[in-house]
Design a protein around this nucleic acid. Structure first.
Lengths: 351, 351
DNA sequence: CTGAAAGCGCTTACAG
DNA sequence: CTGAAAGCGCTTACAG
């Protein structure tokens, strides 16, 4: 069945009775070709069942149009959503990006990067795997391939970064909790090997500081950035002699875990313990109770990142400005009503 | 900075003092090369900062080693999980698959397929977009590129398919509901343009038939395959004069929506209305209440699909056996205790 | 507007 | 075990 011996431009040329240069030109949509010639060629292309060999073209042109998106965890709806945002802009630029998943493994990431380079990518947007070493992108850099990071930054790297304003988001959320009358606050989940952890924790601390929460009343619980991590954090927090009454969670997954654990204990989320998430994934709105969370405009950040690589490729540079995206707190039900008994109801949403 | 003029095997040859054939041979790990020569060459490769040009190699070899995974909706954790299963086997086969998302759009899918062909893919595993026309894969077929479908099948296509046993899964779930004492049952969500819809609905009907549920007591509500769809289905079902007391949902997303809507109305999922989902996504276990669902071994099906393409590529065929994966019902909390008042408690889990 | 020729970076027989 | 030569399917000056 399979038509052995794929057709090449030579076959088309023969079929159409022109030279292969002419075929190549119409393939590229050149205006040098007379319309009726082009038509004849296009018909021949159909007739012989031709499929363009991009590899051969790239070899000759010495550059490709493939762009790679390397994502640390496609299984995480947050990153999937971001990827979809990027895809949208690549698509409208007429290019089909290749997505690769590193499953949060630096080793896997190395393989993916190598493969992409061999494939001759024109540019890359990557959300680096946890534990990526500073040298991981060296080869790409010396090869002059444009790369931009999204969501996560590496400790000391000159690669442009697109992230949300983590510090401000955490600050806003914490201020909201304090405005609700809470005076003993926790930060749940995340681990210190991620730069964003420090950014979010920093915002939390800054808000506590600004609103006069004593250092002893700022409780930090590291943990997995997952539902399970949230459950664990709540358990250990509630086991304290003087437990916190509210928590800012590293991300929404942690917050969902906290909500779950609260219910399991017969506690009412919001009324008995306030929780706010981070990222505002799609599910936050549909949870019971609906989760108050810091919206980071996930897809928008993805789009921005895509635009940046595209521009870099076009201007043949390997440098670009960082971009810190705006965030905003979406108040829903998980922090319940104000805690009037503490006499702070008039404080409002500071910040 | 970027070292212009990338190194080629000629540069390596010069650096190592051998011919380029020799370099090519060591690149391919040929045993024809003396170890010390290979070593010398490998050193030169490092020294000149060489990166293999897979495009050039493919051009010459007339075949590539890139495999594509085209997924209908990466944003859906179910498909993401399946993709990760596939990736695992490709990875251990030493190849980096390229993932592409079609966002459930046949047009987008067409573009993706075209791009992949131009890139010279060796094989493809695809979960087709909804509304894919039968002709969409014709070009791939005539080009002799191995393709396998996962999860979704096309009406009349000879491309091998890997799916779960949808009919049996639905049958099991429905029998469970009947065993719990329900006598008026609903099927929630999904639409008839999907083959799997008919398979699942068929299983539902077969079980109703087998256990003597009157046709008038089998209620079918088409709807979006999302949380929102589930909410809508429940609303319209409950508005009936004689509403159903239990529902089998097309998938877990629909079931989550139903659970949510139940809660909003002050109804207790399980006790007041039983619901079972389909797919058993990771979240099902963590829901409140934990969702009873039909487990389809998502990642396993992905792995199977990957193995099948790999085999097809290796044996240069475009044909393979279909595979229907085993399913099983995971009973959790969303169907509550048996409905003793109906006097059917002794029936147990038939089927 | 179209044709003949060179060359992109590799691999593959074929000699030696 | 290693070298010289041809060729994979394109694009790109260069003539005409």
């Amino acid at each position: 069945m399979a038509s052995r011996a794929k057709a090449t431009i030579l076959d088309i040329a023969r079929e159409a009775g022109v030279s292969k240069s002419t075929v190549s030109l119409v393939l590229q949509g050149s205006r040098l070709i007379r319309p009726e010639t082009a038509l004849k060629v296009r018909k021949a292309i159909e007739d012989v069942g031709y499929v363009y060999n991009r590899g051969a073209a790239n070899l000759r042109k010495a550059h490709s149009n493939v762009i790679g998106m390397v994502i640390n965890d496609l299984t995480n709806p947050f990153f999937a959503e971001m990827a979809v945002g990027m895809e949208r802009v690549f698509q409208s630029a007429g290019i089909v990006p290749f997505i690769a998943n590193t499953a949060e493994s630096p080793v896997r990431q190395e393989e993916v990067l190598k493969s992409l380079m061999e494939q001759g990518v024109a540019g890359l947007v990557v959300s680096p795997a946890r534990g990526t070493t500073p040298g991981a992108f060296r080869r790409l850099e010396t090869a002059g391939v444009p790369v931009v990071f999204v969501m996560r930054r590496l400790p000391e790297s000159r690669i442009p970064v697109i992230t949300p304003d983590n510090h401000r988001g955490a600050y806003l959320a914490t201020a909201h909790l304090i405005g609700k009358g809470h005076r003993r606050l926790a930060f749940f989940g995340g681990s210190s090997d991620l730069v964003v952890y420090h950014e979010r924790l920093g915002g939390f601390r800054a808000a506590c500081e600004a609103f006069g929460i004593a250092p002893a009343d700022r409780l930090v619980f590291e943990g997995e950035t997952s539902r399970k991590g949230g459950i664990a954090c709540l358990e250990t927090a509630l086991a304290m002699a003087a437990p916190p009454t509210a928590a800012l969670c590293f991300n929404d997954a942690v917050a969902f875990g906290v909500l779950l654990a609260l219910r399991k204990r017969g506690l009412e989320p919001g009324a008995d313990f306030a929780v706010v998430g981070f990222d505002d994934v799609a599910e936050a709105e549909h949870y019971m109770p609906a989760l108050t969370s810091v919206a980071v405009n996930t897809a928008g950040l993805g789009e921005r990142a895509a635009h940046v690589v595209l521009k870099m490729i076009q201007s043949r540079t390997t440098r670009a400005e960082d971009h810190i995206g705006a965030v905003n707190l979406v108040v829903r039900e998980s922090c319940g009503p104000d805690r009037k008994e503490h006499g702070c109801a008039g404080m409002g949403d500071a910040a």
